[in-house]
Computed example of a mutant assay.
Amino acid sequence: MSPQALVIPAFETQRYRISFPKTKAELLNMLDMGTLFTFRYHVWTKGHAATNFQKWRTATTPYKVQWEPDFEPYIVVRKDIPEYDTRFVGFGWNKVSHIMELEAQGFEFVVLPNGFVIHMPHAPSFDIAKFRSSAQYRKCLKILKNEFITDLSKRYNKQFELETS
């Protein structure tokens, strides 16, 4: 049996105060009312798209999803998995690289049908501000990404696509 990473569907609100939903039914109502949204749907859809939120809405049992590039779900795993790659400090690619390594190791990604997390708004971090404002920061991150992908491909004898743009 393949090792599993349990995917916790992620949502967010733009409001600083909400009544936190206690059940999936309450969360779905808040989604339909526009109080909650799928996490980062407006800025980084790829990060959580593989979760398949449409399927999650009606799921009553766990379901598997396929890894996709840039997938960065919130997960629950055993504690004996690889740690985050230390090349990715600050903002950018820490979760993506971690999930890629789990994919390379053959993990299955299983979405929990009744679990969820909600991201609350907060001030931008210093590191995301640097990422947004510094072309040099973004260039360095791209170099680190490609270095990581090359290393990962060699280590697990599995092909991942390098970033070209």
Rank of each mutant, 00 (worst) to 15 (best):
N52F: 11
G34S: 07
K79I: 05
F37L: 11
L27D: 03
W93T: 07
M33L: 14
V111P: 04
F37H: 14
G90W: 13
T60H: 13
L36C: 10
A123W: 04
Y63I: 06
V96Y: 03
D85T: 06
N114T: 14
A123H: 12
I81G: 02
E103N: 15
L31H: 09
V89H: 10
H122A: 14
P113K: 07
N52I: 02
F109N: 07
V111M: 02
T60D: 07
I118W: 12
T61M: 06
G34I: 04
H48M: 06
I99P: 05
V89E: 15
V111Q: 03
K64R: 12
F53T: 05
L112F: 03
I81N: 02
M120S: 05
L112Q: 10
F126Y: 12
P62A: 10
L31T: 03
F91N: 10
F71G: 03
K46W: 06
W93G: 01
E83L: 08
P121G: 05
W93S: 13
E83M: 10
V117I: 15
R78C: 07
F116D: 07
W93A: 11
G92D: 11
D32L: 02
W93C: 12
T35C: 00
F71E: 04
P82D: 02
T86V: 12
V96P: 06
N29P: 00
F71W: 02
E26L: 09
V77L: 08
M120D: 06
Y41S: 11
E103L: 00
N52S: 07
I75Y: 01
E103Q: 15
T61R: 12
V43D: 15
E108K: 12
V117R: 13
P82F: 03
K64Y: 01
D32E: 11
F39K: 10
W93E: 14
G47N: 09
F126V: 10
P69A: 01
E101T: 08
P73A: 02
F109D: 01
D32K: 13
E83T: 13
P69K: 00
F39P: 00
E108L: 11
T58H: 14
P69M: 06
T51P: 05
T51N: 04
P62V: 11
E108Q: 14
W67M: 04
A59I: 06
V76P: 00
M33Q: 15
V111W: 03
A50M: 09
T38W: 08
R57H: 13
E72H: 00
E68I: 08
D32C: 02
R40S: 14
P124V: 01
D85G: 05
A123F: 12
L31P: 06
E26H: 06
V89W: 09
